[in-house]
Computed example of a mutant assay.
Amino acid sequence: MSAGGSTKAILAALFANAGIAVAKFVGFLVTGSSSMLAESVHSVADTSNQGLLLLGQKTSQRAATKMHPFGYGRDRYFYSFIVALMLFTLGSAFALYEGIHKLSHPEPLKSAIVAVIILVVAIGLECYSFYTAIVESKKVKGDATWWGFIRQSRTPELPVVLLEDAGALFGLVLALFGVGMTVLTGDPVWDAIGTICIGVLLGIIAIILIIEMKSLLIGEGATASESETIEASLVSGKIERVIHIRTQYVGPDELLIAAKIGFAADLTLAEIAQAIDQAEARIRAAVPAARLIYLEPDLYRAPV
């Protein structure tokens, strides 16, 4: 898919998180709430993450070189992996540390109503960012479930932004819960509990992203439906069968296909070359991401 939709979602998240981060830090300085501090660091991390995703999109567009003959498409996977690591370290680990610290040494909140107002405004901004990510993801999600989309998408930015925004939204709700319960009960322990819950939530999201981005970095093949389409496009005309086939995404929009295909023994070299050209055209028409196609002609020998 084009990077346009993911870029729009990234920019929406970038501007929303930057504004939210400033507001949260002001709220922390006024109230001393550990939930607000954890959410402030979370928003700063998210803002940095959006910058890294944009950087990955930019560097992935570099032309192929002799050292990197398949181009730099995997830069988008690399920077998405870094984003997952940052979410784990700056978001989850810091929130858990701060929450445990405040649980051991609780401190009363000051001007808690300020924190409540900031959190409510931040929830509104985060809803806008999350809605934008959902709208852009629906354009490419197809019939897959949301979990299936996150697991199967070869475009890393949208799943990252979706999970980040979901984590930010639920994190704000948890922070609001912690601050609200502290105001209602007068017990600052609730603020620390909210902070710990934020850390656990971000840790779960970060681990999911780390696993998915690691898989993309190592190299994933075509989806099951794409593989069926590719094989159906190959076996036509003078091509009798696919002997074996390998696929791999070398970038979100660039699929490598290598296959050995079986021909009849009485074909001329010209007929084989023409059949291969036609097969490549069929594949590219059916699977636009198939940019690199290598087909090896052979005679099929039935196993003895």
Results as ranks from 00 to 15, higher is better:
S2H: 07
T7F: 04
A13W: 01
A18N: 01
G19Q: 00
V22D: 00
V22S: 01
F25R: 00
G27N: 01
T31K: 04
A38E: 12
E39L: 13
V44W: 12
V44D: 05
T47H: 10
S48H: 00
K58V: 02
T59D: 05
S60A: 15
Q61I: 12
A63G: 10
G73H: 05
Y77Q: 10
S80E: 10
S80P: 11
L85R: 05
F88G: 13
F88H: 07
T89M: 13
L90W: 04
G91K: 05
A95Q: 02
G99K: 05
G99S: 08
K102A: 15
H105R: 13
E107V: 14
A112Q: 04
I113K: 10
E126W: 07
F130P: 01
Y131W: 15
E136H: 06
R154D: 11
V160I: 14
V161L: 05
A166R: 01
M181Y: 04
V183C: 10
T185R: 07
G186S: 08
V189D: 03
I198A: 06
G203F: 11
I207M: 11
I211R: 14
M213K: 02
K214V: 11
I218L: 15
I218G: 11
A222E: 09
A232K: 15
L234C: 08
V235Y: 04
V235D: 02
K238A: 12
E254K: 13
L256P: 01
L256D: 10
K260M: 13
F263H: 07
A264W: 06
A264Q: 15
D266M: 05
Q274E: 13
D277M: 01
Q278D: 13
R284M: 13
A286H: 05
A286Q: 07
L292N: 12
Y294K: 03
Y300I: 06
